[in-house]
Design a protein around this nucleic acid. Structure first.
Lengths: 243, 243
DNA sequence: CCGCCGGCTGAACGCATGTTCAGTATGCTA
DNA sequence: TAGCATACTGAACATGCGTTCAGCCGGCGG
């Protein structure tokens, strides 16, 4: 399919593609490959074959190697591109982001960036560098948001703000990751639907927990605080789990 | 290594292995293969090769096929075995399990069942049937525990106990999964150390959240409750995220 | 006009995988 | 002792993978 230098050849490839966002056919093969890779990686995970990606982009497998050198480097470029996209989306939405979760909710529930969400989730499954970076960003943001919230008096202060921010972020993202992994959408375009369902199902318990707590007494917390302020002599590390 | 019918041959294989828990060499090859598979799967994930498993068990790859038919069936048997193990451990510890988390904390922090924990985490990463079953069990248990806790007056009641149990379970397990995926132990035997570190780091924020909540006012919760009791006419599904 | 260079293909290579198979050794049964 | 089922091996097969390579084609500088 698509013999080298056919009727249209790589029309419009060498000259700058011109205006705005070009249609799929009218773009650099390189860019098409990258986008196809993002999509395939999001849908199938990073085990997706170079040949499948190449087929999606309408080129040969050899060309992928020609442009990117190796599958690993291709993935690295996808990671970089995704990180840039996320940063842009974040910047665009920072205005109406009130709480830490908020950005992610809006972001993940938006139809148009299903591939981005899928890719990030895959990266989390994989433990890649992107996931680490993404989560660090989320944690940093959460620290900022909670600081503001505490200052404004709408959030309860914590004895260890950093630990709380990390805990809340890991819980939110981890739960979502687990949910999506457990019941993956049959059609990848349903990803956002699954995400939205999960978010709407967890909203009530989350709000209850955030507003009313879970334990009726402070005893376990106080016990723990007492415990860490005066630990038993034979143990350096605070504690695994008193309860 | 270990040619067919060497000096010791399959000594003690056909006759019942006799008493108690036999040493590694003195056991059915079939059992050795299964255990090696559990270990490899836990350490490397389900991409671990049949040859590697066979080598660990000290047999040829062909024998694995002879006993299990296919890699898939081998994994199915590992799943079944793990599920049985988990149920046993649960039964043994049900006595001193007070809260929903408690069992899992003790279970995951115990040195001896690192392979079990690793295998379950891998299964969650993979989205396999075992993970679904395991989590369903955890959720069911959480429902029971919270019912008891609410009845005893130590836990705040929820407007949707099932949803809360699921939310709490997915959050706990998801966060742990994410943490381990993000910074996997270099030596697989360090798994429980990583788990223990994570648990001790999240204990304070968790206790704070459970005891003191996160939001200082009930407004968001009340808004949501008002919203679901009288939803806007153009929308069937409750809500994605008001805030 | 020529030659070159870069985008691009299709076939091939090397490797790892799951699986098959013919064949060997061993213990049980008759 | 003969025969048979079973445990087991080592080589081989088929497949899919990432990657390499010789070569085609077309635009562009001389």
């Amino acid at each position: 399919m698509r013999s080298a230098g056919g009727p249209e050849g790589r029309a419009g490839a060498t000259p700058p593609s011109g205006d705005g966002v070009p249609a799929d056919a009218d773009r650099t093969a390189r860019a098409r490959i990258r986008d196809a890779a993002v999509y395939r990686f999001a849908v199938e995970g990073f085990g997706a074959s170079v040949r499948a990606i190449a087929a999606d982009a309408g080129v040969s497998a050899g060309l992928v190697m020609h442009h990117f050198g190796s599958k690993e480097k291709l993935r690295a470029e996808c990671d970089a591109h995704l990180l840039a996209t996320i940063r842009r989306l974040k910047r665009e939405n920072v205005a109406d982001a009130a709480a830490g979760q908020s950005f992610f909710h809006k972001f993940a529930a938006a139809e148009e960036n299903a591939p981005v969400v899928g890719y990030v989730l895959r990266s989390m499954q994989d433990g890649g560098a992107l996931a680490r970076e993404f989560i660090d960003h989320m944690v940093t943001d959460a620290v900022d948001y909670t600081r503001d919230g505490v200052a404004a008096g709408v959030l309860v202060p914590s004895r260890d703000e950093a630990a709380r921010a990390r805990y809340l972020t890991l819980s939110s993202l981890g739960a979502l990751l687990l949910e999506v992994t457990l019941s993956p959408p049959s059609d990848p375009s349903d990803l956002v639907a699954v995400v939205r369902d999960y978010l709407s199902n967890s909203y009530l318990p989350m709000m209850e927990l955030f507003s009313e707590g879970f334990l009726t007494s402070r005893r376990m917390l106080d016990d723990y605080l007492l415990y860490v302020s005066d630990p038993p002599p034979d143990e350096a590390v605070p504690a695994p789990a008193p309860g």
